[in-house]
Design a protein around this nucleic acid. Structure first.
Lengths: 152, 152
DNA sequence: TTATTTACTACTATTACGATAGGAATAATA
DNA sequence: TATTATTCCTATCGTAATAGTAGTAAATAA
C-alpha cells in the first residue's frame, strides 16, 4: 500500500503538462528541472503515459510533450492506473488465480477498498488540481487588503 | 499500491480468530492449515499483531492465540496499519521530509486518497466480515422456508 | 518429564524500485 | 548538408523490500 515514486512523479509531470495545455510542447528537461526529478528517470515514466495516449510527443528540435486531452478530461485514476497497475491485488482482476475466491470474505474487503480508491481518484481531474493550486496561491498570499511579504 | 501478502494473510488470520472469539485459543497450525498458509510465515505475521495488543497469546500445550477484543471492536484498518504501515507516503505523516510540501498540490491528492482509504477500512469490523460470510453462505445455499429473499 | 505451543533470531532467494548510461531516431534550422 | 536539440529505446545496476525457510529457546499443561 505504498505509493510508488513512479506514480508520484508521473502525476507531477502530468500536472506540469496540464498547466501548459494549449501552449505547445513542454520539454522534459524543464519539468525535470522544475520538479527536481532526474530527467532520465522521468523519461522512462513518460513512455507508458505516451503509449496509453494520455500525452502526445514530438521528437527533434522544438519537440517535447503535451497533454493529449483537455485537463478536465484526464483523471488522476488514469495516471495512477498506467503507472501503478489497476488492481490492488491480482485476484481482483483475475479471480481464477485463486480457488477460494467464491468463499473468500477478505477478498471482498479488498474489492471494496479497490472500488473506493478508484472512485476517489476518478473524481479528481487535472483541471481540478489546477484550481486547487490557484486557490492555494491566492489563499496563502495576501488576503485582500492587508499585505505582507509572502513566506519562502 | 499493491497490497502485501502480510496484510492479506494477517486479515485472514484475524478473521479466523474472530470466528472463534469467546471459544478459547486457536492454534496457529490450524489456521495455517485451513488457510493454506505456511505456518512459519504466519508465525512472523502474528508477532506485530500481538505486540500491538490486537490479539492475546498463550504458550505451551493448550496455548494458542485469541482475539484481544470483541470482533465488533476491531477494524480492518487497525490490522492493515500494523502490518503495512499507516501512510501511503512518507511525507504524509512527516511533512518536514519534503521542502515543497506547502505548495505541493499532488501531495494533497495523496492526503485525500489516504483519508478515503482510512475511512473505508475503518468502517469494516471483523464482526461485519462474519456477517458477510454468513450472508454469503445462506445466500449461496438453499434458502430455508423460502420466506424472505435477502438479495444482499 | 514430555509433548506442545509460542517466541525469537538468523538466513536466503526473488522481485520490485529507483536510478543511471549510452546511443539511435527524428526534426528544425543555420 | 551539418548541427543541434529533442524524444526514444535498451540495457544495466545497486539497494531495499518481500516472501518464505530454518533452527532453537522458552513456557506450560498434562
Amino acid at each position: 500500500m505504498k505509493l510508488s515514486t513512479r506514480a508520484r512523479y508521473g502525476l507531477r509531470l502530468m500536472f506540469a503538462l496540464a498547466k501548459n495545455y494549449g501552449k505547445g510542447y513542454v520539454l522534459l528537461k524543464d519539468v525535470a528541472c522544475a520538479e527536481e526529478i532526474s530527467e532520465k528517470y522521468l523519461s522512462l515514466i513518460v513512455i507508458p503515459l505516451r503509449s496509453t495516449g494520455l500525452i502526445n510527443s514530438a521528437r527533434g528540435a522544438t519537440g517535447g510533450y503535451s497533454l493529449a486531452r483537455d485537463p478536465s478530461q484526464i483523471t488522476v485514476k488514469e495516471i495512477v492506473d498506467v503507472l501503478e497497475g489497476e488492481a490492488l491485488l491480482d485476484c481482483l482482476k483475475n479471480p481464477s488465480l485463486c480457488p477460494r475466491v467464491s468463499s473468500c470474505v477478505s477478498r471482498d474487503v479488498w474489492v471494496l477498498l479497490n472500488d473506493k480508491i478508484s472512485e476517489t481518484l476518478s473524481s479528481i481531474t487535472l483541471e481540478k488540481l489546477i484550481q486547487m493550486e490557484n486557490e492555494k496561491i491566492s489563499g496563502g498570499k495576501i488576503e485582500k487588503g492587508g499585505n505582507h511579504e509572502d513566506s519562502r
